[in-house]
């Protein structure tokens, strides 16, 4: 069982995730149409590029935009969730030991107590994100079971990881559950709303090009949202 999910399943989920992201990103940009979108992407590549980078950069910065500043609570839980959710899976010592064994490559690693802290932060923020969904009428009205499923898929690897980390009950069970839930997450990325992990950059780049070219960029106005 362990061999299967760390062997075939690992390669399958990683492969599907990476290939899926690549294909969908290519399709996204190929699907942009200057005449339908009404943005002359190709006529002003430099302005478009600058607009795209600016748009992505500003929104990656906590409180970097009016939107973030307007909603401080959401901004804090959003960044706590996403910082942990990106850093821990990539830079955890145990993940990199596993990766090295599999591929001979490994990434920079973070201290285990930092990883613990960030993981708790992810779980705590996820709970707050769910509570926010339930509490605020403007969020509740749009929320469907699918939104909760996405949150569940995203947070399950962190919960199971903590259970294994603190060896609550059967360590092997939690380890298997952790690896499986991680693989489900990888498989879900290209096919669900989780595609935002890469389409966020694509979509922001598009609007950044729109502003950088058509909506004032060529006039020298850099909108600081």
């Amino acid at each position: 069982m362990y061999e299967f999910i760390t062997g075939f399943m690992f390669w399958l989920s990683l492969g599907v995730c990476l290939a899926g992201m690549l294909i969908r990103t290519v399709l996204y940009f190929r699907g942009l149409a200057w005449n339908l979108d009404r943005v002359a992407y190709k006529a002003y590549p430099k302005d478009g590029f600058n607009g795209a980078m600016r748009s992505i950069y500003k929104w990656l910065l906590p409180f970097g935009t009016h939107g973030w500043r307007k909603q401080p609570f959401m901004t804090v839980i959003f960044f706590c969730f996403h910082i942990g959710a990106v850093i821990v899976p990539l830079f955890l010592v145990a993940h990199n030991l596993f990766l090295e064994k599999k591929t001979g490559l490994s990434l920079f690693t973070i201290n285990n107590s930092v990883a613990d802290f960030l993981t708790w932060l992810v779980v705590a923020s996820a709970i707050l994100i769910v509570l926010r969904r339930i509490a605020l009428p403007e969020v509740r009205i749009m929320t469907t079971w699918y939104d909760y499923l996405i949150i569940l898929i995203s947070v399950l690897p962190f919960i199971t990881g903590l259970m294994a980390r603190y060896e609550v009950g059967n360590y092997n069970f939690w380890l298997l559950a952790h690896i499986l839930s991680g693989e489900i997450l990888l498989l879900a990325i290209p096919f669900t709303k989780l595609s935002h992990v890469f389409l966020f950059f694509a979509s922001r780049a598009q609007l950044g090009m729109d502003y950088g070219i058509k909506r004032g960029g060529l006039k020298g106005t850099k909108m600081a949202w």
Partner: peptide, 22 residues
């Protein structure tokens, strides 16, 4: 006429409600 820009917008909307106040 509904190409990747609008389709992606419809797909990835996180239903977060941050647009409400705007």
């Amino acid at each position: 006429t509904c190409k990747s820009r609008i389709r992606t917008w419809l797909e990835i909307c996180a239903h977060c409600g941050m647009c409400a106040d705007s």
